[in-house]
Design a protein around this nucleic acid. Structure first.
Lengths: 217, 217
DNA sequence: TAAAATTTTTAGATTTATCTAAATTATTGT
DNA sequence: ACAATAATTTAGATAAATCTAAAAATTTTA
């Protein structure tokens, strides 16, 4: 598989898990940052290789083999992210670009040994699960912070938005995975909320609370 | 720089350090495993980027910038080799192919931090020096095993041939970096020699003794 | 339901990196 | 020195991955 093919597969996999039905050409184009016509071409090639089904003017669906391949790439991406954060002092907003490159390195032994070296981590630095060598992973049983009610407490477990800007915001406010957060106040008008963590109180907008996953306690 | 450009620069750098004069198209073609006509094309592009000088029908010479780039790639290659051997249980004959891929990952922080994580190694698993961030490295003051005389002793310091086959041979015979080797006997007829290491005696051909670097003691 | 808007595909072009085959230049042997 | 040989370059082709512009299909909306 070429680098471009791997990137398409991975993007389509992520899009399939967000929306319901087949993934549209436009959606892929947006994610990959390419023109829709380029997507049509690549989709045709992936369909020939039986990594996805394509119904013209409808959408695409990954085959089992396509999903398997996508999960292997995601496994590599997330293992490298753990390595970068735990061993090389990267912060969680710096890892993405480098992991995008590392995920394409081809060596079975490399990944097996990296996994062992990192002591078989189950989640990446953003709280996302790391598939095992067969592609299996625990689906996260989490809810978004915005859904909690006043008085409830939860542990910060992941982020829905892994953009540099968002992660940087969280760092700056001192919010990180594992933190215990309690809801102090909810403002129905604009859906902002006041949360308590580390003896401090903090007001956050819905833009924030909708992008933090938590585990209730 | 593209992946192909990086591979050409690295290969030309190595060839320049073996032979004396300009590197020939054919020599590059052989090293890269491409046709001479492909080399001509790529050389033209690298010359346009001022990474090397090219005199038609003569050879090529890297510019200072070309050498600098080549050494950065070699630095990355060798640091990754150390990582693979020391942290991921690779043997020295397994590292090359994976390091060939890893050397092209683009991230300054990645290499700075990897260097620190490995505690600033000065040599790779084959005994070759690792350039620092400026491209400087200690040129090795070593000689080849074949040049030693009967009765002399030396420490195994590196290999001139990093092929899987050769490294595998050494592993099988139990020869590794750091071993103390003494010359017991030299046969002028076929240039084979009997060496002593670890209480054992071993007969090796000139093919072997010419590809092992040693430090006299 | 037909026109407008949107989405998707097709057709044709471009860039990178490669190839084969033919032409050109350099080197070598007698 | 000059014909044979070897090395190198040119010309033209191909495959991957992309693009623009235009055509076709689908969806929306009035």
């Amino acid at each position: 598989m070429t680098l471009a093919e791997e990137n398409y597969l991975k993007s389509i996999y992520h899009l399939e898990n967000r929306g319901i039905s087949g993934v549209s050409t436009n959606a892929i184009a947006q994610k990959i940052e390419a023109k829709p016509s380029s997507v049509t071409d690549m989709v045709k090639r992936l369909a020939e290789k039986e990594l996805l089904h394509h119904i013209k003017y409808q959408g695409v669906y990954l085959t089992e083999e396509g999903k398997k391949r996508a999960k292997q790439i995601i496994r590599k991406h997330r293992l490298w992210e753990v390595f970068l954060v735990e061993k090389l002092n990267f912060s969680w907003d710096e890892v993405h670009d480098v992991a995008e490159q590392l995920e394409h390195i081809k060596s079975k032994k490399l990944i097996t040994e990296l996994d062992r070296f990192l002591e078989f981590p189950k989640k990446d630095p953003h709280g996302d699960p790391i598939p095992d060598q067969y592609g299996n992973f625990q689906p996260l049983d989490e809810q978004i912070l915005a859904q909690l009610e006043v008085g409830e407490s939860a542990i910060c477990a992941g982020v829905k938005d892994s953009s540099k800007a968002f992660l940087h915001y969280l760092d700056q406010k001192g919010i990180k995975l594992g933190d215990t957060i309690s809801i102090v106040e909810k403002e129905p008008f604009d859906q902002s909320m006041v949360i308590a963590l580390d003896e401090r109180q903090l007001t956050i907008t819905d833009r924030i609370s909708k992008n933090i996953s938590v585990k209730r306690i």
